[in-house]
Design a protein around this nucleic acid. Structure first.
Ligand code: FES
Ligand code: FES
Lengths: 160, 160
DNA sequence: ACTTATCCTACTGATAAAGTAGGATAAAGG
DNA sequence: CCTTTATCCTACTTTATCAGTAGGATAAGT
């Protein structure tokens, strides 16, 4: 339960934009699609804009669209923006000096780092073109730009 | 940063007991080893005892010891006790009905489940005998009971 | 001008984490 | 017994983050 609702909303919003394609969506239209409080979503979109993930236009007909092709936007980027370091614990963050309060060498750290690296690997290899393709397939702009969709087959279902 | 300090303390305490071996350690002795507020650690040990992970004895010469051989205690068990579900997000918890607020099928879920399963897999295959062996090796009772220590070689260092 | 949208900042309520504090209970040693 | 040493148990406090609300300023179409 470490993914906050804000991160959840942000990833859903980016996914909705990826599915919608090249045209922009207003906050109101996004709210219809992803079920998020609108004034909260406004802040989130603003944050995504500052980070260069989406682009905005104001006034009527305005709204948000992706700032890069969806296959270049990884889930890792969006998650990291809202969650900060992806390590499960502080002493397992990258470029951390190896100081552990335990007298004997604390061997837990390498396991925390394993969890961190596994998490990052999964999020890095998951891009929004793939997610959009999985959703229902038809991302219109994909065919227009000749983007090859990759890994359309979903991962095998998890146990239990 | 989703591992709470409480979980951190608990895992360190169990590791300290695994390293120490068959004899019990008092809270005071544990505090010396793992640097944790003593009255807070008391609560944690109590919780570990209720869960059957450690066993306690009262009075002078009392303290805590592991309730099972360390190779039978996985990190997953301790972490789950203090963290609850290991899924990164609610909709990725096991036996959750597939209801997503998004209109179109939300394909994010399978990725969250990947993260969940990778995390669980790592924590499940990490037991405290291995962790103790890595620490400095000499868990005295191991030789007594004839326990074969497994995977003494540490995992390769993570990137960055 | 008027409408529709993004933009920007401040404020609020709820919840959980991280400890503190203080005593009750049980066992060992004299 | 009686004292010491330890676990046991409950309640309280403090702090920070999360998850929003609210209200207006700004820009772009018509
Ligand atoms: S405390 Fe994090 S590795 Fe020892
Ligand atoms: S909201 Fe979690 S999977 Fe769609």
């Amino acid at each position: 339960m470490w993914i906050t609702r804000k991160t959840d909303y942000a990833t859903r919003a980016v996914l909705a934009l990826a599915i919608h394609g090249a045209e922009s969506l207003s906050v109101h239209e996004l709210v219809d699609r992803i079920q998020v409080p609108s004034s909260y979503l406004e802040q989130i979109m603003s944050q995504l804009r500052s980070a260069g993930i989406v682009r905005s236009e104001r006034g009527p007909k305005g709204g948000y669209r992706l700032n890069h092709p969806p296959e270049e936007i990884t889930l890792e980027r969006v998650v990291r923006l809202f969650q900060g370091p992806l390590a499960p614990i502080e002493c397992a963050t990258r470029n951390m000096p190896a100081s552990c309060p335990m007298e004997v060498g604390c061997t837990l750290r390498s396991t925390w780092e394993e969890v961190r690296d596994a998490t990052i690997a999964i999020l890095e290899r998951t891009d929004f073109a793939t997610l959009a393709a999985r959703a229902g397939g038809s991302w219109t702009a994909a065919t227009k730009t000749g983007t090859r969709r990759r890994r359309t087959t979903a991962a095998p279902a998890a146990k239990g």
